[in-house]
């Protein structure tokens, strides 16, 4: 059933999302040409660069728009499907609530990942037009890739294993980060919709604003603590950090630490949503 649930969740968001994605990709071509034109003629005092600035501005506006639109579409789909009148129909389906939730989490994650992919691809398209610094070829061509391959060939096997280990950890972090964003959004909607008997949307928005303030207040002491700890660690273990490969174990476990924190947050938020859906479902 997960496949079917996911198909409908995906379609529901995709029917609007694809327009934004195509717009971003489409605008990346004139933006790339505009960047190249700006680079070539920026010393010309007679030129006003109206179309160039417009093209670049439109591209970055579309990037902002797709980032916001994805969050809104995912949130709206989750809210309407679970907590509006449609919720009666959803929860009468012969599907486990955990499957319904997992489908939403998966579709949310997929759209965040697709959005990131669209942004990366559009930036790569711009890179095709703009030459690399000091070179005649573009930032993203076969020559640049060949240089990367040549550098990689010179790396010893032991280092390649380290690079693979780090790459795996980075992939895990890249998966967990949008997952945390998706689950955080779903948690706020779920709490807003289950706590408030009326004005659920207002309650959700209130929770979003409140959580935003709370996170902003928390981030300062956390960053300060991290800075202090890194400073103290570098001070106490400066000799060790200089030793061959010693610091690489440290970085490996530091990445694992971040992964574990993200995974804990994901598991906690997932359980909160699941608990609310099972025990405190508050349909209109």
């Amino acid at each position: 059933m997960l496949k079917k649930c996911f198909k409908y969740d995906f379609k529901s968001v995709f029917k609007i999302w694809w327009i934004a994605a195509v717009t971003v990709l489409g605008l990346s071509v004139p933006a790339g040409i505009a960047y190249e034109s700006l680079r070539e003629h920026f010393k010309d005092p007679a030129r006003r660069f109206i179309w160039e600035n417009s093209a670049v501005g439109a591209f970055w506006f579309s990037v902002m728009a797709i980032l916001i639109l994805t969050s809104v579409l995912v949130a709206v789909r989750f809210y309407i499907n679970f907590f509006s009148d449609e919720g009666y129909l959803t929860f009468t389906l012969p599907v486990k609530r955990s499957t319904l939730l997992f489908s939403k989490i998966l579709s949310g994650f997929v759209f965040y990942a697709l959005t990131a992919l669209v942004v990366v691809v559009s930036l790569a398209v711009i890179g095709l037009f703009v030459p690399a610094v000091g070179e005649s070829y573009s930032c993203l061509t076969a020559e640049v890739l060949c240089e990367f391959i040549l550098i990689f060939k010179e790396v010893p096997l032991k280092d390649i294993l380290w690079i693979i280990a780090y790459a795996l950890e980075l992939v895990l972090m890249a998966i967990l980060s949008p997952l945390v964003s998706t689950l955080f959004l779903y948690t706020l909607i779920t709490l807003g919709a289950t706590i408030a008997k009326r004005h659920k949307v207002a309650a959700t928005i209130g929770l979003m604003v409140g959580s935003n303030y709370l996170l902003s207040a928390l981030i300062i002491p956390v960053v300060l603590a991290i800075g202090l700890w890194v400073n103290a660690t570098l001070h106490l273990f400066s000799d060790k950090m200089l030793g061959e490969y010693d610091w690489m174990y440290f970085v490996l476990f530091a990445f694992l630490f971040v992964i574990a924190v993200l995974a804990t947050v994901c598991a906690f938020l997932g359980n909160v949503i699941q608990g609310c859906l099972e025990r405190k479902l508050n349909l209109p």
């Binding site: 010693d246 490996l252 476990f253 630490f257 995974a263 804990t264 994901c266």
Partner: peptide, 21 residues
């Protein structure tokens, strides 16, 4: 138990950091 596993991994990674140092 997913939460148990994730928080256990958190503690294990801390032990790993200390061991590496």
């Amino acid at each position: 138990y997913f939460l148990t596993a994730a928080s256990a991994l958190w503690i294990i990674s801390t032990v790993g950091i200390l061991a590496s140092l």
